[in-house]
Nucleic acid binder design. Structure first.
Lengths: 161, 161
DNA sequence: CGTATCTCGGACTAAATAGATCCGCAATAT
DNA sequence: ATATTGCGGATCTATTTAGTCCGAGATACG
């Protein structure tokens, strides 16, 4: 279950990775190996998850030497929701299977024209969750970090200032 | 995922079962077998899930002939959140593992006194989700059903009017 | 008051999904 | 030309979910 019931660990990884990439100078990149080293994470698995962010259009990647990942657009235009849904999908946690139409208690079709009341309430909760995450951009996150954080991140992540 | 990311099928089952139990006359019960027949669900597995609601204090069960399940309190005092969290746990979907303190980029302890900014934003989204579900009671659900629904449910579920 | 029956309760077993890893291919800058 | 990097597929393992079973306890009836 948002058993949800539980988000995978990689969600935390990618939120932090995106935050770090947002602190690089415009155009600069960091490789999957550098990010894995920066957070002490298993490099192969992290690389695979980063690809999901590229497919979702949140990051852009360049291959070859001195290649790596960078934000695909300005930090103010990337929300936490986009990152989270890129990692573990945008599907609704609660999936209505219309059990109201099965069994002895099956409702007549005319009462099933509109969406099930319970499904509607669950969908409303999901909308509230999404709206909360959609209201926070990476720029908002950076604004809450200490002033010296970006330079330190650049130094430790890419080895350059 | 809440993995979320995906909620188990039983969540839908129990939301509907609780709604049906809320339509019975005060004190009346319905057995697991009756509920399973009413929705055409596997009886043993449904019984197992109903026990979770009993443990959570949402339902109360009586054994013996003519026993079964009933609401543990008034429908207006049972929220969708209580049901959902009884089924698949009340844990936060996003679990912060403090990767900010690991690897080359490990932050000094004095910067980790307060909660990680990303974890706080994710927790805020979860609070929004919970608040949405906590604002809907079973009585609210019943109010949106057709006027003739309760009598029909009683008839088909327990065989009595 | 005893007995038989009906109910919940928890333990146990399979199946599916997600987590995690590895290896070969394509692309690019040096 | 070579080395480095991302990309995708195939694979293996582990956790969760789905489903089943049998025993303990309580109630109603004789």
């Amino acid at each position: 279950m948002l058993s949800i019931v539980k988000l995978p660990v990689s969600t935390e990884w990618l939120l932090h990775c995106a935050t770090s990439l947002a602190q690089l100078e415009p155009g600069a990149t960091a490789s999957a190996a550098q990010l894995a080293d920066y957070y002490d994470l298993p490099a192969p698995y992290l690389a695979k998850q980063l690809q999901a962010l590229v497919r979702a259009g949140v990051l852009s990647a360049t291959t070859g030497p001195r290649g790596g990942f960078r934000l695909a657009r300005a930090a103010s235009e990337i929300t936490l929701l986009q990152i989270v849904e890129a990692v573990d999908g945008a599907s609704t946690p609660y999936e209505c299977r219309e059990i109201r139409r099965q069994g002895r208690g099956a409702l007549p079709p005319e009462e099933c024209r509109s969406i099930c009341v319970l499904a509607e309430k669950m969908a409303g909760a999901h909308r509230a969750w999404r709206a909360s995450l959609a209201g926070v951009s990476l720029a908002d996150i950076l604004a809450e970090l200490p002033a010296h954080a970006p330079e330190r991140t650049r130094s430790r992540l890419t080895g350059r200032t």
